[in-house]
């Protein structure tokens, strides 16, 4: 059944604009669905009433999305999440989804390469444990870093790396041990699907500002400001030092009892300092480009190695597919590092 005339956009271009607005609000700015719907509905009504296209009335959808996020989402809420709308409170969701998607991919690969069952060897279990440790350490480390907890971020990354090394060493030591049994591959796929569903259904507490930094001693306040500027907004060390020192000087001059009296919560001040600037997103894209560049180089090397050692075959094919995937991610990140995008700091 088609929508009533009153609820339709005046033109397909306007409808595409409205769809992009909703997606940008939800994905990039973490705006709640009812707020995004309300913004799109208001734009649609304005287009109908004025007879002018949405782009002409509100500008590009991306810019309008940034504006909507700035105006309608309380600054405390926007300041509690990273540029992707994430916070350490999402760590279990990330774990479940990561395990679920990884398990699904692994299950499909097993199905193609091994058939309906696969032998469970101690070495394979060690590799699985190493992968889980690496993923958990990397994901939680990134979340902590983006929350401004740089040391905790490094600690998780180091723990993940240690897990990978220990798992790899164990796998090497156990490689000659016989299989413990056979595992039905559909069971792997089912368990992975269950993990994805659990991850999507897991109730999420809304992110909140760090109360201790706002009420603790002034040193903690400045430390938190530095952490958020560096970890979440990717400012250079020099820029972070500059921002913290200017705030410290102002606070001393003002004679206020605590920096929060002049600047509010450190996360809020950090957000206000970068709001309207696309530099944090560009820097984040640049970091991603380096990461994907390293992955592309690694897979590219394995492709050459496989081609020289084994010639052309299935092995070479999937390695080449990995190169193509990481290279496309690299190009996307590189483009993002050069593009000028509106930032709401959400």
């Amino acid at each position: 059944m088609s929508a009533p005339v009153q609820q339709r956009w005046p033109s397909p271009e306007d409808e595409r604009w409205g769809d992009r607005l909703r997606v940008r609000l939800a994905v990039e700015h973490g705006v709640p669905a009812p707020v995004a719907e309300e913004a799109a509905e208001e734009a649609r009504l304005a287009c109908r009433e004025s007879g002018r296209p949405a782009e002409e009335l509100f500008g590009p959808a991306d810019e309008h999305a940034a504006e909507v996020a700035r105006e309608r989402v309380p600054v405390e809420r926007r300041a509690a999440v990273d540029l992707d709308g994430g916070s350490p409170r999402d760590r279990w969701t990330l774990c479940l989804l990561g395990a679920g998607w990884g398990g699904s991919l692994g299950g499909v690969l097993l199905l193609v390469t091994q058939g309906w069952t696969t032998p469970v060897t101690p070495a394979a279990l060690a590799v699985l444990a190493a992968t889980a440790a690496g993923w958990t350490g990397a994901a939680w480390g990134v979340l902590e870093r983006r929350d401004g907890r740089l040391e905790r971020g490094w600690a998780w990354a180091a723990a993940g790396a240690a897990g990978v090394v220990a798992g790899a060493a164990a796998a090497d030591a156990l490689r000659d041990r016989p299989a413990l049994g056979e595992l039905p591959v559909p069971l792997v796929l089912l368990a992975s699907a269950a993990l994805v569903v659990a991850g999507l259904k897991l109730p999420q507490r809304p992110a909140a500002l760090d109360a201790r930094a706002a009420t603790g001693d002034p040193g903690e306040w400045f430390e938190r400001l530095a952490g958020v500027l560096r970890g979440r907004f990717h400012l250079t060390r020099g820029d972070v030092r500059d921002r913290v020192e200017e705030a410290r000087g102002y606070w001393r001059d003002s004679g206020s009892a605590h920096p929060r009296d002049e600047f509010g919560a450190p996360e809020v001040h950090a957000l206000r300092l970068v709001e309207g600037s696309d530099e944090p997103r560009r820097r984040r894209s640049r970091m991603k480009a380096w990461f994907y560049g390293a992955l592309t180089l690694y897979w590219g090397t394995t492709v050459v190695d496989t081609a020289l050692g084994e010639g052309f075959g299935g092995e070479l094919l999937w390695r080449a597919a990995a190169v193509a995937l990481t290279a496309s991610l690299l190009v996307g990140a590189w483009r993002g590092s050069r593009a000028s995008a509106p930032a709401a700091g959400s």
Binding site: S254, F263, L273
Partner: peptide, 12 residues
């Protein structure tokens, strides 16, 4: 004018 309002303006 609070520092939290002024510095974002000056930096921009």
């Amino acid at each position: 004018v609070k520092g939290g309002a002024l510095y974002p303006v000056l930096n921009r």
